[in-house]
Amino acid sequence: MHYAQLLFPDFSLILIGYLLCRYTALNRPVWQAAEALVYFFLFPVLLFQSIVRTPLDLGAASGLMAAGLVTGLGGIAMSYALPYLPWLGRRIDRRDHAASAQVAFRFNSFIGLALAERLAGAQGLQLIAVLIGVCVPLFNVAAVWPMARHGERGFLGEVVRNPLIIATASGLAFNLAGFSIPDWATPTVSRIGAASIALGLMAAGAGMQFQSLARGKALGVGVLTIRHLLTPLLAWGVARAFGLGHAESLMLLTFAALPTASSCYVLAARMGYNGPYVAGLVTLSTLLGMLSLPFALGLIGQV
């Protein structure tokens, strides 16, 4: 399978968003509003629908959930360890590391859901929605923890108010209770979900920034190596160790190789850290995703 060809439409939308934001009247304030619409409404609806659409067997999904947690914890541990590495730690500013550690393990959910549907249809959407539901709370805690003393709100508040967690938890509750979306509402909900993917990908492109990358090169190389090389390799090993099936392995490796979350720079800036530097890392991560995703998916045949 030519995974690079499958990924091209989604990264084309990212490029379109970047060009529209930089060279037309649809500038950054327009895309900030669009990003908020996707994050707080369109995207949660897609997550909810993806989970409710097909009856979920938690017993069958438990292996994927455990594999996702192990992979996520591995990424967090590697990220936290960077300042303590003897050959790298002395080159890393501890304050910049507190803001940038999240880049190594957080992920862009917009891109993840778009790719899941393209690679494995409705089953892929449900599987990656389960991974998102399991890992978003963990990753939010891990992202906020190093910066918590500078934030206005504790990390627990950040987690319980997250719209992705709310949508995932309610979707799981509806699914396990045997409920489903009424037939008359399905077309509307489906169109909302489709809009969230296209608009979310373009918003990710609009948010790319190339400034402030001259500083902290060692730290940048460290977190991006974890995000785009070490974590996919870890996921490949975890998939083999857990004996995951093809679809589960495909989604776990996709999940592990995704670009980092575009909201990383928002969180860093809000908590008093160097937002522009983190935004530069997010931009590089988005570009590196075009290499790490085909690399990770190419490992599927070896699982």
Rank of each mutant, 00 (worst) to 15 (best):
H2I: 04
Y3D: 07
A4Q: 02
L6Q: 15
F11T: 12
I16L: 15
L19P: 02
A25C: 11
N27R: 15
P29L: 08
P29A: 05
L37D: 01
Y39R: 11
F40L: 13
F41W: 03
F41S: 03
L42N: 13
P44E: 09
F48S: 12
V52G: 02
L56G: 07
L58A: 12
A60H: 06
L69D: 06
L69H: 08
T71A: 10
G72W: 00
L73W: 08
L82A: 12
L88V: 07
R90M: 10
R91Q: 13
I92T: 05
A98Y: 03
A99N: 01
A104M: 09
F107P: 09
R118E: 13
L119E: 01
L127H: 07
L131Y: 05
V134G: 00
C135G: 01
A148E: 15
H150K: 11
E152R: 15
L156G: 14
V159G: 09
R161P: 02
N162W: 02
N162M: 10
A177C: 01
W184I: 12
W184K: 09
T188Y: 14
R191K: 14
A195P: 12
M202D: 06
A206G: 11
G207F: 09
M208G: 01
A214M: 09
G216Q: 12
V221Y: 11
V221W: 15
V223Y: 00
G237S: 10
G245C: 09
H246E: 15
L252Q: 10
T254D: 07
T260E: 05
A261T: 07
S263R: 05
S263Y: 04
Y265G: 00
A269F: 08
P276V: 01
L281E: 06
L287N: 04
M290V: 13
L291S: 08
A296M: 09
G298M: 00
V303T: 04
